[in-house]
C-alpha cells in the first residue's frame, strides 16, 4: 500500500463514551472566489458554497465549508479527487479564482460519543454548547498548540482535521485524556 497517513489510533480511544477514528483518504481542495463572483460561480459549478463563514453544505459525501470571507474547502471521497480537480480547472478558465489541491495536507479524526465535547474542549477554547456551536458548523481554531479545523457533524460527533505533522500530538493528547475517563 502506497497510501500511509502515518498514524495509529490506540485502542484506548475506541470506547462507547469516546470513540476516535481515523477518517480514510479524502479529496480536499482549497477554493477562493471573489465575493462578487460567488453567485455566478455557484450557478456555473453547481457547488453548494455556503454564504456565512462557519457554515457548511453537505451533499452526499461532499462537504463544503466556508472558512474565510472568500475561502471554501471542498472535501469528498478520495475517488472523486480527479473529477473535482477537472471541474475546478475548467472553472478557473471562467472565473478569477484559486483552487489548490490539499488532499494530503490534513489528517481527519472522527470524534464521537458522550465525551466528544470534552475531548475537544481539553484543548480547544471554543464554547461547544449547541447554541454557540450548532451541528453543521465548521471553523478553523486551535487545540492547544495545534491549529485545527473543527466541524460538528452531530450533537456528539465532531470531525477534527489538522495538518499531517500535528496528528501525533492530537492522538497523544487524547491518549492522555483517556487515562482520566477509564
Amino acid at each position: 500500500m502506497l497510501f500511509d497517513q502515518g498514524i495509529d489510533i490506540p485502542e484506548a480511544l475506541s470506547g462507547d463514551a469516546l470513540n476516535i477514528a481515523l477518517e480514510p483518504e479524502k479529496a480536499r481542495f482549497n477554493v477562493r472566489v471573489k465575493s462578487k463572483d460567488v453567485a455566478a460561480f455557484k450557478k456555473a459549478s453547481g457547488f453548494k458554497f455556503p454564504v456565512k463563514i462557519g457554515a457548511t453544505a453537505k451533499t452526499g459525501t461532499q462537504l463544503i465549508s466556508k472558512f474565510g470571507p472568500d475561502e471554501w474547502v471542498i472535501s469528498d471521497d478520495a475517488k472523486s479527487r480527479e473529477k473535482i480537480a477537472k471541474k475546478l480547472s475548467k472553472l478557473a478558465g471562467q472565473f478569477v479564482m484559486s483552487a489548490t489541491d490539499i488532499s494530503h495536507r490534513n489528517i481527519a479524526f472522527n470524534v464521537s460519543g458522550r465525551l466528544a465535547n470534552e475531548a475537544v474542549n481539553i484543548g480547544c477554547p471554543l464554547d461547544l454548547s449547541l447554541k454557540s456551536f450548532p451541528v453543521g458548523k465548521a471553523t478553523r481554531t486551535i487545540f492547544e498548540n495545534a491549529p485545527i479545523q473543527l466541524y460538528r457533524s452531530g450533537e456528539d460527533t465532531f470531525q477534527i482535521e489538522c495538518w499531517r505533522s500535528f496528528a501525533p500530538y492530537m492522538v497523544d493528547f487524547w491518549t492522555a485524556f483517556s487515562r482520566d475517563i477509564a
Binding site: I53, F67, G68, P69, E71, T139, R140, T141, I142, P147
Partner: peptide
Amino acid sequence: RWWHAHGCNM
C-alpha cells in the same frame, strides 16, 4: 492590527 490566524485568516 490583529490577525485571525487560527480562524478566518483575515
